[in-house]
């Protein structure tokens, strides 16, 4: 049986380094299987998050050979096995231990977003076409890979001023709900700082659910903000009516 070397980051907030582990490679094996093998045979205290092992829960995000990935769907046979496979924790979030990072920031950002608020007097009839439009955003499994690669968060650490791609997707999923009635543009502009995004599409590239985050969520939301806040006609109307 073929063998691979995994070079896994071991450490915590006080520092650490990479440790090499040799792992037998079975057909169809994914990186998460290899990490489980290491836990089961060599390092029972190796910290890694996982749940479904089927790319449905978004728990096992990591950086494999420098690329942000769900480790449950990163196949060993897609990686060059003649050199060590490097496995690192997500860089944007503070490390807890080994491959586990503190992603609590995301839960704090989510709390800022007003919930779905249905229109009054709706009969709850909706058309499949309208649903299909929003489904894309609601596929998100919250793996936070998009948050991890977004340079506004990763390089500039604008964690308080900026919501990040995941939460623009979430807002899109609420705003484009056929029966939703609240405006979230002020939130997008002020609290979630959508203006910081300069559309480099890094988020879209890493999304394991293939959500077109930039094109279908962020750009339309940016347009809404522009329409509501920077369109002179809308500005006059707001002044006259007193509405936001």
């Amino acid at each position: 049986m073929a063998e691979a070397t995994l070079r896994v980051y071991r450490g915590d907030k006080d520092g650490g380094g990479h440790v090499d582990y040799k792992v037998p490679v079975a057909p169809g094996m994914v990186v998460l299987d290899a990490l489980h093998y290491i836990q089961g045979h060599q390092a029972p205290d190796l910290a890694v998050r996982w749940n479904c092992k089927a790319a449905k829960c978004g728990s096992c995000s990591g950086e494999v050979n420098g690329r942000p990935k769900l480790m449950c769907k990163t196949r060993m046979d897609d990686l060059p096995l003649d050199q060590p496979i490097t496995v690192n924790p997500l860089k944007t979030f503070p490390i807890i231990k080994d491959l586990v990072t503190d992603v609590s920031l995301n839960y704090r950002i989510n709390k800022k977003i007003p919930a779905f608020t249905p229109r009054e007097n709706t009969d709850w009839r909706m058309q499949q076409d309208d649903i299909d439009r929003v489904q894309e955003f609601r596929k998100c499994i919250e793996c936070f890979l998009c948050q991890n690669v977004c340079h506004v968060l990763r390089d500039h650490q604008k964690t308080e001023e900026f919501g990040g791609p995941r939460f623009f997707v979430r807002v899109a999923g609420l705003d484009m709900h056929p029966l939703d009635s609240v405006s979230r543009t002020e939130l997008l502009k002020d609290e979630l700082g959508i203006g910081f995004c300069n559309i480099t599409k890094c988020c879209t590239e890493v999304c394991p659910e293939d959500i077109h985050i930039t094109d279908n969520a962020i750009i339309p939301l940016k347009e809404r903000v522009v329409d509501d806040y920077y369109d002179p006609i809308m500005w006059v109307i707001r002044k006259l009516t007193g509405k936001k």
């Binding site: 390092a43 029972p44 205290d45 190796l46 910290a47 807890i96």
Partner: peptide, 14 residues
């Protein structure tokens, strides 16, 4: 037996 510390230690949890 459990190796390592009490910090996020899957062996201990198991």
């Amino acid at each position: 037996r459990v190796d390592g510390s009490r910090m996020f230690n899957p062996g201990w949890h198991l």
